[in-house]
Design a protein around this nucleic acid. Structure first.
Lengths: 146, 146
DNA sequence: TCCTTATTTAGAATTATTCCAAATCTTGAC
DNA sequence: GTCAAGATTTGGAATAATTCTAAATAAGGA
């Protein structure tokens, strides 16, 4: 699920522009949080991002992590995903994809979608921003156990 | 979004059987909570269900509402949906459908899906339980305002 | 460099959910 | 119908997730 190094550099360079375009300022905290998302693409919760971010930036605060994540979501560099009761998760993969979620062990993985929202019905007047598609069930390992 | 009265009676009669089949007991609280879901299909949060349930059953507790909702979800009479940060919502519509969610005003509505998960990729070994498909954007009314 | 304004910070406050132990039901056997 | 066993409910406390607040700091333009 990792991208190649060149693509990651690209991602990081885009940060400044994208923040600007969205009316946000570039800050070291936002870079740090974005790096956390890019470095381990395992759909961390805000709290997991917080703990990882503290390794490189010990003074960063909880509220800032939320602020940074929200800024990244708003300027199109990350997505927020809602898979279960409790904490939201974050994902820097902006390709059209869906999330397979194991209800037993909590594992999440991305699967790129062949077609985009073309198959979806389009209610009159509704202005679509994005799709949030989760597939719940048991991952291969957990399915075998039962 | 309401079903006809005959269908609702059907829904209510199924409650006992379904609970049994799932290894749950029938209780008045579970009937009450299920009735709340059937009576107003507006995707209430657990807390909204709690407040509505109290009208008919003033002594019902918060923990019981969670317990009942979880039981209903587990025996296939309701679905839990995760649309935004914060509270989960509940929905007694068990047809294959997706949720259109207005990020501005919070309105939710169901749209029955033409095809079921047939178009989805099937990762090897993953045992699919159900799909949870949300479409984010602006409802007609909010789209007009902007 | 200075000013304006966004952002960060720590901690308090709020919201959402889960846990707990005692009391109370539901169900099946008799 | 009565009883016992075990599931469920209760109220309240505990925990988790997120938001708010006011003061301090940092970013970007003039």
């Amino acid at each position: 699920m990792r991208m190649n190094p060149a693509a990651e550099n690209n991602d990081r360079q885009q940060l400044g522009e994208r923040l600007n375009a969205g009316g946000f300022r570039f800050t070291s905290q936002r870079r740090c949080v974005y790096d956390v998302l890019l470095n381990k693409r395992d759909h961390p919760t805000a709290d997991e991002v917080f703990m990882r971010a503290k390794k490189g930036m010990p003074e960063i605060s909880h509220a800032t992590v939320y602020n940074c994540l929200d800024a990244l979501v708003e300027c199109g560099l990350a997505r927020q995903v809602h898979l279960q009761r409790g904490a939201a998760r974050f994902c820097p993969n902006m390709e059209e994809h869906c999330h397979y979620y194991c209800d037993a062990c909590g594992e999440v993985f991305d699967v790129t979608l062949p077609a985009d929202g073309a198959m979806m019905p389009k209610p009159r007047g509704f202005k679509v921003d994005h799709y949030d598609i989760a597939v719940h069930g048991l991952c291969a390992a957990c399915a075998k156990k039962k």
